[in-house]
Design a binder for these strands. Structure first.
Lengths: 234, 234
DNA sequence: AGGGTGACTCATACGATGTACGAGTCATCG
DNA sequence: CGATGACTCGTACATCGTATGAGTCACCCT
């Protein structure tokens, strides 16, 4: 019985009449504490490292207690992911002159936030859009719109940037762990018929940040509404 | 004991002296049959639908028998993924005039191959590069290189395209299942502070293919070595 | 004062999963 | 005929997510 499952989330409510006396043990369980601890665990042990039992242990509680605050493990993932994506945007970009720099900054911050927690990249492609993602998309939209992108092109622009950032981040997030793997793979190339990528040392290229930035520039060149920005010096 | 784990894969060898007499039951277990059946299962039931026991059942064998042909479940995923990415390239593109059309065709085929098996998108970002992926990357490299992309820019170009295709495919693959989810999410936008993406109906936009193509065009505009291709009429 | 209510915790248990282990079958070759 | 090695598979184990329902305790109403 109990309240459980009222509306969308799971419980909550009740103002704050906590008796304040459990100084010795642990503070009371709460959604926020669960999410914070899940983050720790994920950072320390990766995606598979997060289990409800381990999480509960770290919180000093029984495994099943978590389910009062959270519907299921999926929700823990969703919350952890969204918490990674929190954006403390530029304090005042109300009327920035350089929309392009703003966009680049936003997207680089986005990517950096996720790379700080490598598990988050593999987690992102899930249907739940948390408020923080939506916030980022909103800000991006607003910026592009204000920069002069026609409404008809807005969605294409946003999805293109999204795709690019997502792909770059996911790829990067799943790659840097395997340094010798990459070397091994690259070696395998030599013995078979992949001459071009073998020669360009594609799998060994380490300048992820630079490549991200350059590719983003290309994309923005294409998307730029002001076309004389679109033609770089070449 | 047994051979198990010799070199890289697991066994193989032995020419073909099969006695040919099990016509009634099932053909003998084999790596290929395992992968093919795994594909069926994945297509039918999704990522979580694939379990070693179910796979074995479908093959008419015991669960543990699989492990003779395959190291572990991970390897089944890797093989299934690579099999999805098989590329029957354009028969003769030895000296195609229109490299750009070639690239677009390759990338659209890539995306389409994965979308035909929606589970594959979430699976791709793993460190193992199968031969088919490498083959696609090689072909892409060769095409770009032949089109005049400088060696120094090759890797950036490839990774940019990779990122874009990956992001687009993963996003799409995880989205089309949730049609009302998207409607619900879009509705949620209205009640909160996301005016721009609410107005552009970002989450309801259904023209994935068109958006993919347009964004790709933008990217290629940026990447094009021939810069007068880079400036569209716009 | 006493009983009820609802918020919260947790022990136990269930059904699944991946796979280690080792015994089994059988064709082949010495 | 005995050995070898390819291959199959029953059993068992640890671990997982979570359903169920009993337990604790603060609070409110009468």
């Amino acid at each position: 019985m109990a309240a459980k499952r009222s509306g969308a989330g799971s419980k909550r409510a009740r103002a704050a009449p906590q008796p304040a006396q459990e100084v010795p043990g642990e503070p009371p369980l709460s959604r926020d504490r669960i999410v914070a601890t899940a983050l720790e665990l994920l950072d320390a042990q990766g995606l598979d490292g997060l289990t409800m039992r381990r999480l509960a242990d770290r919180l000093g509680s029984g495994a099943m207690s978590l389910y009062w605050h959270v519907d299921n493990k999926e929700e823990v993932f969703d919350l952890a992911l969204d918490s990674v994506l929190e954006y403390r945007g530029p304090p005042q970009m109300v009327e920035s002159q350089d929309w392009r720099a703003d966009v680049v900054h936003m997207l680089e911050d986005w990517r950096a936030s996720m790379l700080r927690h490598p598990w988050s990249a593999s987690l992102l492609p899930r249907r739940a859009f948390g408020p923080n993602i939506l916030g980022r998309l909103e800000l991006l939209s607003k910026t592009l719109s204000r920069a002069g992108v026609a409404d008809a092109d807005l969605n294409v622009a946003i999805w293109s940037l999204w795709n690019y950032v997502m792909g770059a981040t996911i790829t990067r997030g799943n790659f840097d762990l395997s340094d010798d793997d990459r070397a091994a793979a690259q070696q395998r190339l030599a013995s078979e018929r992949y001459p071009t990528i073998e020669r360009s040392r594609l799998l060994l290229d380490d300048d992820w940040d630079g490549a991200f930035r350059k590719g983003l520039d290309f994309l923005l060149d294409g998307l730029a509404p002001d076309r004389n920005f679109g033609c770089k010096i070449g």
